[in-house]
């Protein structure tokens, strides 16, 4: 079981790294939102799943409740992260920032 936990942890770290590199490299803030919001969501799903699995090593009622709470956090992140992204996009649209198209300079 330890191998499964380590595998999921490393996969989550790869997704988090991709998110951080993407935030630095993409040209404008609409395209930066793609790695920021979603690779982070996927990474936290994988890492939290691995941690809740590791937490079930000693199977007691308290440990099961704690793992359930971790899964609840993941569900909350999956609901709230698109909403936060949509809020940021909406703010940019109302301020009148146009999206970056091919051939513009980096912002």
């Amino acid at each position: 079981m330890d191998f499964v936990v380590i595998f999921f942890l490393v996969c989550g770290l790869v997704f988090f790294t991709g998110g951080a590199v993407g935030i630095l490299r993409f040209p404008d803030f609409y395209s930066r939102l793609h790695p920021a919001g979603k690779l982070d969501t996927m990474g936290s799903l994988l890492m939290m799943g691995a941690l809740s699995l590791y937490n079930l090593h000693h199977f007691t009622l308290g440990n099961m409740l704690t793992s359930l709470k971790i899964i609840l956090i993941v569900a909350f992140v999956f609901l709230s992260s698109p909403t936060a992204i949509h809020g940021i996009v909406d703010a940019g649209m109302r301020a009148g920032l146009g999206p970056w198209t091919k051939g513009d300079r980096r912002r």
Partner: peptide, 10 residues
Amino acid sequence: LIGVNAVGSK
């Protein structure tokens, strides 16, 4: 704001 959001989710 995007940077702060990414730090928070980690």
